[in-house]
Every structure is written in structure tokens, then in C-alpha cells.
């Protein structure tokens, strides 16, 4: 068997065959593999894994704390915003009230002033009305007087004898007609 294998390998090339199947090296490999695995296992369980686990836990804790703090701050901000909004609404309502009050006061004053002014205007116009009527009456009387005088003068100028009463009657009749 061994010679055959050697021959086959010899024709294949460098005559190493398959080193994997060279069982004389197996104890060596298995021994060193076990040593290696034990060393790695000890490295991991004694140092590396607890350390990495602790770091990861720390980080998780830090992140959780930060998130909680952030949540708290957010709640605070929300509260502050609510208070601000409430104060703002209150101020708005107050302002509206003040404006309404002022408007009502002004309206009242205005109404009073308007009424007073109206009354004054009414009084003035009544007075003016009276005087206009007076003037008109005066003017009418003057016109009648002028007409009577003019008529008498015209009659006298024409050589007639003017009876004052008949002239007046005639003028009056004419003015009416």
C-alpha cells in the first residue's frame, strides 16, 4: 500500500502525496491544537470576554441614562411650552378685554358728544330758521311798501290824484295775483 502510494505520488510531482493523510503527524497537530485552544479559551474567559461584556453593558447603561435624561428634558420643555402657551392665551384674553372696555368707553363719550353736537346744531338751525323767516317777512313788507310808494309816485307823475287807500288796495291785489 505504502509503496503504491509513493509510486503514485512520485508520478504526480513532488511526491508529497496528501500530507493531510500522513497519520504520523496527527499527534503533533492535535497536541498543538489543544494547546492553542486552551490558550485562546483562557484568554477569552479570563480577560477578553468579561472586559468586552462590561464595556458593552457600560455603554448600554450610559445610553439608557442619556435617553432617560433626554426624555426628562423633553418633558420639561413640553411643560414650559404649555405654561408659555397658557400665559400667552391669558395675556391675549386680557388684552381683548381691555380693548373692549376702551372701545365701550370711547363709544359712550362719542355718543354723548354726538348728542350734544346734534342738540347744538338743532338749536342753531332753529334760531337761524326764525331769523330767516323774520328777514323774509321784513323783506315782503318792504317790497309792499316800495311798491305802494312807487305806484303812488307813478300815478302822481302821470298827473292823477292818487288816493292812498285805493293805491294800496290795488298794489295788494296785484301782489297777491
Amino acid at each position: 500500500m505504502a509503496t503504491e502510494a509513493t509510486k503514485a505520488a512520485g508520478q504526480g510531482g513532488e511526491a508529497v502525496g496528501m500530507p493531510q493523510l500522513d497519520f504520523s503527524t496527527w499527534p503533533n497537530q492535535i497536541f498543538w491544537l489543544l494547546v492553542t485552544l486552551v490558550v485562546i479559551y483562557l484568554l477569552l474567559t479570563r480577560i477578553a470576554l468579561p472586559r468586552i461584556g462590561a464595556v458593552l453593558a457600560d455603554r448600554k447603561g450610559a445610553i439608557t441614562n442619556d435617553l432617560a435624561a433626554a426624555e426628562e428634558l423633553k418633558q420639561k420643555a413640553l411643560k414650559a411650552e404649555k405654561a408659555y402657551n397658557e400665559a400667552l392665551a391669558q395675556a391675549r384674553a386680557d388684552a381683548a378685554k381691555i380693548v373692549a372696555e376702551a372701545r365701550a368707553g370711547i363709544q359712550k363719550d362719542l355718543d354723548a358728544a354726538l348728542a350734544k353736537a346734534d342738540a347744538q346744531i338743532a338749536a342753531k338751525s332753529a334760531e337761524s330758521e326764525g331769523r330767516i323767516t323774520e328777514i323774509r317777512d321784513g323783506a315782503l313788507a318792504a317790497v309792499t311798501e316800495v311798491a305802494k310808494d312807487t305806484a303812488r309816485e307813478i300815478v302822481a307823475a302821470l298827473g292823477g290824484k292818487a288816493d292812498a287807500r285805493s293805491v294800496a288796495a290795488a298794489v295788494t291785489a296785484r301782489l297777491k295775483g
Partner: peptide, 26 residues
């Protein structure tokens, strides 16, 4: 089977470098 000595030398007739000699344990 497989009792090849890693030290066996033979005539090199095929590949200039043998694909398996990288696995030899020295």
C-alpha cells in the same frame, strides 16, 4: 493507506510546483 513519508522525494514530471507541498508539516 496514506502512509506517505513527507520526506519522500520523487522525479518532478508534472507541475513545477506541487499543489500539495504547501500542506507539508515540517
Amino acid at each position: 493507506m496514506g502512509a506517505n513519508r513527507v520526506t519522500t522525494e520523487g522525479e518532478s514530471s508534472g507541475f513545477a510546483i506541487h499543489p500539495m507541498d504547501q500542506f507539508v508539516i515540517k
